[in-house]
Nucleic acid binder design. Structure first.
Lengths: 186, 186
DNA sequence: GTCTATAGAGTGATAGAC
DNA sequence: GTCTATCACTCTATAGAC
């Protein structure tokens, strides 16, 4: 029996893509097996909790990525203006200029939202909080910073919906450009 | 056998709610049968094409509602300022202040997007076009009107995602209020 | 020998189609 | 209601690393 040693973390990217493309319900184990190249044995070895644990692991990885790459810089940077510009650039890259959807946003709209409520809520709460901090250090008052960060996160999610709905990544890029203008104005 | 005469159109609201709550894949025929009160026989009598035809009929009904209640007034009203205000009010009512998601937006994010591509694309295209017309009559130049309407539709979709993600309808109402301000400024 | 990664036949339940 | 396909999942077996 071939033994291609792998570990849990190795299959998370493929797992994420399957969930992105088919949703939680639509991602069958057959599909997951095909895309990860793993049999059910391996899958259940890595994720004894089945599909739910697989999705949870994917969400946790996304959360960790955003925390490290986006939220922490927003919170800690000495230069909030630069941190916000970096956020927009990282977001453009992460979502492949609108060709890739936000798995957490997609989960939020489905019946999956309640199953992963903590992760879904926590992700957006952290994003808004981190961006709000940067905006305050940029000179906004607390109320304005909260409103603006809520608006920004919503604008990104909405642009992802629209870009995919209309199958036009340019929609996402235009939205990011407008958002950049709005976030630069104090 | 009781014969409660009903027709296709009667079951569309219930059908819409099931798809909203469970998504296309998650809405099983058992669930649909329970919520509509119809057996599989009746369902296949009304919708010979099965689930796909059911979803298509729901999308068509939503499209018709928006065309009549939102898009047409935006295009035809003599008073674009009032038409835009009416749009925001109708949207708030339709989405129950953020407690109800946009089925078309949800479909756009899933694998269902390709299946119903024409409806999904057409819905958002019509919305943007209608709002853009109202904005031009309000005094915006074409480019600004197009950008602003794209921004507005995205803001609404994003607010729906966020409101549901964070389980807080107030997010949606705040977003609509900010959007109202932005659309009033020429 | 033990342990971990693997494969996949087999389980009952439930899916959508008709 | 009946059909067949497919679902998530279980379980046994096995290979190789120690």
């Amino acid at each position: 029996m071939a033994r291609v040693v792998s570990e849990r973390a190795d299959v998370l990217p493929a797992l994420g893509e399957v969930f992105r493309e088919h949703g939680f319900e639509g991602a069958s184990l057959a599909l997951i097996g095909a895309r990860t190249g793993l049999g059910k044995g391996s899958l259940y070895h890595f994720f004894p909790g089945g599909k739910e644990e697989m999705a949870e692991a994917v969400l946790a990885e996304i959360d960790a990525w955003f925390t490290h790459e986006i939220f922490a810089p927003l919170r800690e940077s000495k230069d909030p203006r630069q941190a916000i510009a970096a956020m927009l650039q990282a977001i453009d890259a992460y979502f492949r200029s609108g060709r890739r959807i936000c798995l957490i946003g997609a989960f939020a709209l489905g019946a999956t939202r309640d199953r992963f409520a903590a992760r879904v809520d926590g992700y957006f709460a952290a994003w808004e909080e981190a961006l709000g901090q940067a905006l305050m250090r940029l000179g906004h008052r607390k109320k304005a910073a909260v409103a603006l960060s809520e608006d920004a996160v919503a604008a990104i999610q909405g642009a992802l919906v629209l870009a995919r709905a209309r199958n036009d990544p340019a929609i996402f890029r235009r939205a990011l450009a407008r958002l950049g203008d709005r976030l630069r104005t104090v």
